[in-house]
Design a protein around this nucleic acid. Sequence first.
DNA 1: GTGATATTTGCGCAAATATGCAAATATTGA
DNA 2: TCAATATTTGCATATTTGCGCAAATATCAC
Lengths: 113, 113
Amino acid sequence: MNTARVQELADLLKALGEFNRLSMVYELCQCKAPQNAMCLCECCGVDASGVSRHLKVLSQEGVVSSERKGRAIQYSLNRESVANQLRQLADLIETGQPLETLEKQNERQDLQV
Amino acid sequence: MNTARVQELADLLKALGEFNRLSMVYELCQCKAPQNAMCLCECCGVDASGVSRHLKVLSQEGVVSSERKGRAIQYSLNRESVANQLRQLADLIETGQPLETLEKQNERQDLQV
DNA sequence: GTGATATTTGCGCAAATATGCAAATATTGA
DNA sequence: TCAATATTTGCATATTTGCGCAAATATCAC
């Protein structure tokens, strides 16, 4: 049943499936420049510590990347990666095609390079 | 910020973002014929009451439809609807295009019909 | 009707989660 | 160096969530 891949996808969806976190993602996806945590405080009504924790979850699931710039840490959305995962799930649900493991996906991408 | 739409999507992702529920969806998406709850008990290690509750969540979020056939209730996946929502989110994340409300989507589909 | 099968619901429990506050840390800018 | 800014972490708390069991309910087959 490809349990590991189902688990991966479930973890990703769980990370995205919380209102304040998805609001942060929505905010990030509409910004060209990366944002720091203080900016993201405003879009959802959570204080800095909460934003920090949410960003940690998103980061662990590969939704965002971070890079320190001066005092602040700039967060940016991993657009392609997240979009591809969602599309793969959409395809699976629509067509019933079996899930590919992440390993296989990476192998396939290696071949293309 | 289109809060309502973000909330809708978050609810959908939360419904899908639980391992046993996603396993059930995975099972359903690979079956041509609708399945009843007892079948779905097997694919995840949850008893009938748990499956019933999970199916209720999935049903409330429009992931599955149900129809009673004799004693059992047959569940089937709303493939297109769920796939479309996931793709819309993927597009949003990839391109930053603003979210359409569900109402607008329906209007647009009405026009196409 | 009666028993058999399928699903739902009430209850309680344990684990996970989201949050705010305050303190600790990190890193820069002057 | 030192003060200011940004982020993380510990703690406490309230809420949510997933689960199993047993009882209730629904529906059919006979």
